[in-house]
Simulated scan of single mutants.
Amino acid sequence: MSEHLLLAPLLESYFRRRLTKQRNATPATVSSYRDALRMLILFAADRLRKKPAALALEDLDRDLVLAFLDELEEKRNNCVATRNARLAAIRSFFHHVAAADPASFGVAQRVLSIPINRAHVEVTHHLTKAEVDTLIAAPDPKTPRGRRDRAFLLFLARTGARVSEATGVNANDLQLERSHPQVLLRGKGRRDRVVPIPKDLARALTTLLGERGITHHEPRPIFVGARNECLTRFGATYIERRAATEAEPTRPALADKPISPHIFRHSLAMKLLQSGVDLLTIQAWLGHAQVATTHRDAAADVEMMRNGLEKAGVTGDRGVRFRPNDSVLQLLNSI
């Protein structure tokens, strides 16, 4: 056996079989893991003064991986969460190495023993109802771009969708003709969920679809950019920051808030918590994999956290379908 020829086939089998066929990983996960391993290989090639194709598996030992992780934090200024995400990709690959090539078990075991770093978890920021309303009202409703921006901000604020979920929504994911309109959101890790749509958002979406000549059953993106392509994450961030700039004269406090599309999720969670909705319902609504993630929003208010923890129980499995009761629907239509 030639160990110097071992790395390439293991990488190929990892991406072609392990991730895509055995793990059924999403394209986003495959892309993230590919980037992490590409960065590791380029780092190893530079450090060992070898061409990437000349690297052997034993070159990617524990010491080299640790040096790579240190460079991420010290030279690239990556946060602990990003460092841990890169390590997760590397560990996933070495789990495959241990199973696929017993001769390399020792190398894999030493890399797998590298621990995840503990990250400082800050209290999440959120917007008040008045601030959310001001942001939504900021875009000019007299222009097509302004109406799109308003509808997009309203979608984030009312559904609590992640940016990737909102930009990935197609017209056939909507059910606006129902007595209680709803939308299918495709969450991280293939965790799909259905969430309610309030009346103001339903009207905005109906108007937007009508302007673009799209019926409710077409598999076409709802939110598009200037080139009529699906809105990107950068485009979504630009929309909110532009709205924040326009809204700051009216709401100066917005200048001190870390404005990003994700802040709407926290703002909706806080509104639901303040209205007495239990943590498990919010977990299902926002598509959190664990109720502990929802606790971070509750931690912004000690009394809400205490009440939520008393109501919380065992977390649900993957693929939660949220079915709100009438009281929650009334609350949604009032925010």
Rank of each mutant, 00 (worst) to 15 (best):
P198L: 03
A202N: 12
L184W: 05
A161F: 01
R220M: 14
A202W: 12
H216K: 15
C230K: 15
A151R: 13
I239Q: 02
P198Y: 07
L185S: 06
G160E: 01
Y238H: 15
A253Q: 13
K188N: 09
R190C: 00
A244N: 09
H216E: 15
G276E: 06
E246M: 00
G213F: 02
I259N: 00
A161G: 14
L280Y: 12
L279Y: 08
L154D: 00
G160D: 01
L272V: 05
I214A: 10
F152V: 01
R203V: 14
L184A: 02
P219I: 10
F264V: 03
I282V: 11
H180F: 11
D192C: 08
S267K: 08
S179W: 11
E165G: 02
A204C: 14
F234L: 12
L268G: 03
P219F: 11
A166K: 02
A253E: 11
A157Y: 11
I282C: 02
R178G: 06
G210P: 06
G210V: 02
A166W: 10
L154E: 07
H266E: 05
D173Q: 08
T207L: 15
Y238F: 12
R193E: 11
G235P: 14
S275C: 04
D173N: 15
S267V: 02
A202V: 00
E229A: 11
P261M: 03
V195R: 09
E229F: 08
A247D: 10
K257M: 05
G235Y: 00
A166V: 04
A157H: 03
A166Q: 10
N172A: 01
S267E: 08
P181T: 09
L280Q: 14
A269K: 05
L154V: 02
R242T: 11
G225I: 07
K199H: 10
F234A: 12
N228F: 13
I222L: 04
I239Y: 01
A166P: 07
P196M: 05
L184K: 14
I259E: 01
H262E: 08
L185Y: 04
R178L: 09
S260R: 02
R233N: 08
D200R: 06
D278T: 03
T245M: 09
Q175H: 15
V169M: 08
R150M: 15
L268N: 00
V169T: 13
S164R: 13
L174I: 04
L156V: 07
G168T: 07
A236G: 06
N172M: 09
Q175K: 15
A171M: 13
V183A: 05
G213D: 01
T215W: 00
